[in-house]
């Protein structure tokens, strides 16, 4: 029986399967799709023209399914053009436990994302307002939090505190990174404790939850925003659905742990569609800063 908390990143495949089943899409429909021109919606199965989808911020025009997008897209979407300056991009993971296949996984993820770890941090402007921003990338070992992610979040918190500018974190993570053992768990304490310093200086922190944000990241900084915003349909929670199902041996209710479920249970402030994300962040910052 898996009873764990530091839930790791393996829900990705499960989640996709879950969504498809829910919408009754049969895998028989698989047709070869020429790469680069057409994209099939993971949720409703609609074949979509890539350029159109791109224009729609990777949200299915038919069913509103929010495709998972890279850290680059979020930076483009949220920040004023050309204002992003990366910080701590030189921090890289170390396989200090000599953990099975970890160096291979790091190497592959680096290639896939162009990042040295699962988060990019830096400063930028939103509608002219200075912010510190961090964006996680699920493609880097499931967005898992090891020493580098924890350290970069901590440093972003300290920069926000020093400069007295708001902090924005876009989350996408399966939790703490198993391959760095107990030190991954300690990143929860590192980040959550540092957030006290930000609160002391009355610097706002907005947490944006994307699909998925679970376990160690959800149980630390992702949950602790002054405002907690979720994209529609994101898987949010502590334990993964598979673990819960194995433990309680019951069917999970439909929509369990999705953004809409979390909103209903009072765990997040609002659900915001991608196209309204920047506008919402700006409005919130203006409220918090009384600007």
């Amino acid at each position: 029986m898996v009873l764990d908390a530091g839930r790791i990143f393996c829900y990705y495949l499960f989640m996709r399967w879950f969504v498809r089943k829910e919408k009754g899409i049969k895998s028989k429909e698989k047709k070869p799709i020429p790469d680069g021109v057409w994209v099939k919606c993971d949720s409703c199965g609609e074949i979509l023209y890539r350029k159109e989808l791109e224009k729609n911020l990777w949200v299915c025009p038919r069913c509103s399914y929010h495709f998972r997008i890279s850290h680059k897209k979020y930076l483009e979407m949220l920040l004023d053009e050309g204002t992003f300056k990366e910080k701590d991009g030189n921090l890289a993971p170390v396989d200090f436990l000599k953990f099975k296949d970890y160096p291979k996984k790091i190497e592959k993820s680096m290639k896939n994302t162009g990042l040295k770890d699962a988060i990019i941090c830096g400063e930028g402007k939103i509608e002219g307002m200075d912010v510190e921003i961090c964006v996680m990338d699920f493609k880097f070992i499931g967005g898992s939090m090891g020493s580098v992610v924890g350290e970069k979040v901590k440093r972003a918190i300290y920069r926000a505190k020093e400069r007295k500018v708001p902090l924005i974190i876009v989350n996408a993570s399966g939790g703490a990174r198993m391959q760095e053992g107990i030190l991954s768990l300690m990143q929860m304490a590192k980040t959550a404790s540092a957030l006290n310093l930000l609160a002391e200086e009355k610097v706002p922190y907005i947490s944006i939850l994307t699909n998925p944000t679970t376990a160690g990241v959800m149980a630390s900084y992702a949950s602790l925003g002054d405002a907690v915003i979720a994209e529609p349909g994101a898987l949010l929670g502590f334990a993964g659905p598979r673990v819960i199902q194995q433990t309680i041996k019951q069917e999970l209710p439909p929509g369990f742990q999705r953004s809409e479920f979390m909103l209903k249970h009072g765990m997040i402030d609002m659900i915001v569609e991608r196209k309204n994300l920047k506008k919402t962040v700006v409005t919130l910052l203006r409220h918090f800063l009384n600007k």
């Binding site: 009873l3 908390a5 929860m188 959550a192 006290n196 679970t214 992702a222 949950s223 502590f238 819960i244």
Partner: peptide, 22 residues
Amino acid sequence: GAFPGIGAEERGQALAIAENIR
């Protein structure tokens, strides 16, 4: 570990842990 169950999720297991640590 913290209990992985429906009620625990509904009542904010992740939030409770995050707030305690903070």
